[in-house]
Every structure is written in C-alpha cells, then in structure tokens.
C-alpha cells in the first residue's frame, strides 16, 4: 500500500493540517518511506491472536456518582477559559460555525 497525492491531501485534511501543494511530493515520499518499513508486519502470523486493548490487566476503576471539587469538578469557568485565545462571558469564541 502506498499513498498517492490525493491520499496525502485527504489525510492531511482529516488531521486538519494545512499543507501546500508543493509539499505534497516530499510528504508523500516520507510517509511512504515509513509505511514501506512498517509493511514488514505483514510477515507476522496473527491468526487467532487477540489484539492488545490494554497493558493493564485489572478491572476498570470507577468513580462514585458525586460531584467533585478541584480539577475534575465544575464551578470553575474562569479556569476553563483562562488560556483561551478568545472568550466572552466565560464562553469560548470561535469563527462562526455553519450547521
């Protein structure tokens, strides 16, 4: 499997990274270099092997249903928008979204 120009552009768009047309050829080359090297995994027999979902083999820890204080709780709109490039009345402000 190797990428063509259109796929490089499509992937860049999916990843929301603007790329210039003149960058496509070398990006394509680099990505294909990496993917070509990864290709060796096709040699491995994975018949009947379960995919790794987690390294940790314990039961999932759960929270109790109470509202928290601190970072994992609410009631801190100032903190939430403190680093935002643009805000208004504790809202994040972004270019108009068209639905």
């Amino acid at each position: 499997m190797s990428l063509d120009d259109a796929t490089v552009k499509k992937v860049a768009n999916l990843a929301r990274i603007a790329i210039r047309d003149e960058d496509v050829p070398h990006l394509k080359e680099e990505l294909n270099g990496i993917l070509g090297w990864i290709e060796q995994l096709q040699e491995v027999d994975i018949e009947g092997v379960e995919a790794m979902t987690s390294v940790v083999e314990t039961d999932i820890p759960m929270r109790t249903d109470i509202t928290a204080d601190g970072p994992t709780g609410g009631g801190q709109p100032e903190n939430i928008v403190a680093n935002a490039p643009k805000t208004e009345d504790h809202f994040f402000v972004v270019p108009k979204v068209v639905e």
């Binding site: 970072p71 709780g73 609410g74 009631g75 801190q76 709109p77 903190n79």
Partner: peptide, 11 residues
C-alpha cells in the same frame, strides 16, 4: 441550566 462553562471540569 448553569451559566456558561460553569459545569465544566478540566477533564
């Protein structure tokens, strides 16, 4: 019905 970003944690 809370104010904007009032019920929001860092998560």
């Amino acid at each position: 019905g809370a104010g904007p970003n009032e019920n929001v944690s860092l998560v």
